[in-house]
C-alpha cells in the first residue's frame, strides 16, 4: 500500500493554487491520474519520486516512511528508486539504446527481454537523436523498467505512439507490471488510452 497525504503550493499563471492529495494506492494496482493542465499531476509524481519536496505531508510505502515533513524525513530519489518515465523522456543524448539500459542494470537477460518487448533490439546501438518519437518514448519506458521498480511513475506514456504500437506495448506491459508486482501511477489525459490497463483512477482538482 502506498499512502500519500501531501500539500504543495503551486505557482500558476495569475496566482497560486494548492495541490492537495490524500489517497492510497493498492500494491500492484495501476492507477490513471488525470485532471486539467497545471493541476499538479507531474508535480505529484515528482513528489512521490523524491525529486520535489512538498510543504507538508507524508508518503508511506508498505508502512515505510518515504516522506514525513513533521519528522523531517525525506528519502532521496536514489533510495526510493521508482521507475520514472518523464514527459520529455529525459533520454541521455550521449548513450545508445543499449547503454541506457546498461546504465540502469547489469542484468543482461532482463535487458534483452526489455529490448524485445519495446521492439528496440535492432536499434540497440542507436542514440536517441536517431530514434523516432515513438521509439524514444518506448526507450524511456524500458529504462524505467530496467531497475525492476516496485513503484512505476509514468508521465503521459503513450502520447507519441501510434494506435497499433500503443496496443501492442500495453499488452506487453501488463503482465510485466504483474510480474514485477509493481504499483503503477500513470498520468494520462486520454481516458480511453489506458482502457484495459488501469484498474483505478485519481482525479486531481486544482484548489
Amino acid at each position: 500500500m502506498i499512502a500519500v497525504a501531501i500539500e504543495k503550493n503551486l505557482k500558476v499563471y495569475r496566482g497560486k493554487h494548492v495541490l492537495k492529495i490524500n489517497h492510497q494506492f493498492k500494491t500492484g494496482s495501476i492507477t490513471r491520474i488525470y485532471g486539467p493542465s497545471g493541476a499538479g499531476k507531474t508535480t505529484l509524481l515528482k513528489i512521490i519520486a523524491g525529486l520535489i519536496d512538498p510543504e507538508k505531508g507524508t508518503i508511506r510505502v508498505n508502512n515505510v516512511p518515504w516522506l514525513d515533513t513533521g519528522a523531517n524525513i525525506s528519502l532521496s530519489p536514489q533510495k526510493r528508486m521508482p521507475g520514472f518515465v518523464f514527459q520529455d523522456y529525459a533520454l541521455f543524448p550521449n548513450m545508445t539504446v543499449l547503454q541506457h539500459l546498461e546504465y540502469a542494470t547489469n542484468n543482461r537477460d532482463w535487458i534483452n527481454r526489455l529490448l524485445l518487448l519495446g521492439q528496440l533490439d535492432t536499434l540497440a546501438d542507436h542514440k536517441p537523436i536517431h530514434l523516432s518519437g515513438g521509439q524514444q518514448q518506448r526507450l524511456a519506458i524500458l529504462r524505467a523498467l530496467a531497475i525492476k521498480p516496485r513503484l512505476l511513475l509514468i508521465d503521459e506514456p503513450f502520447s507519441a505512439l501510434d494506435p497499433a504500437m500503443k496496443a501492442e506495448l500495453i499488452t506487453g506491459l501488463k503482465p510485466l507490471f504483474a510480474e514485477l508486482q509493481a504499483t503503477v501511477l500513470i498520468v494520462s489525459h486520454n481516458p480511453v488510452e489506458l482502457e484495459g490497463l488501469a484498474d483505478g483512477e485519481l482525479y486531481i482538482q486544482p484548489l
Binding site: 515528482k46 519520486a49 523524491g50 525529486l51 532521496s76 530519489p77 536514489q78 526510493r80 528508486m81 521508482p82 521507475g83 520514472f84 518523464f86 520529455d88 529525459a90 533520454l91 541521455f92 546504465y103 540502469a104 529504462r143 524505467a144 530496467a146 531497475i147
Partner: peptide, 14 residues
C-alpha cells in the same frame, strides 16, 4: 534539461 539528472537519480545513481 533538469530531467536528465533527475532520471539518473531515479535509477539509483549518485
Amino acid at each position: 534539461p533538469a530531467s536528465l539528472a533527475q532520471a539518473s537519480y531515479t535509477l539509483g545513481k549518485t
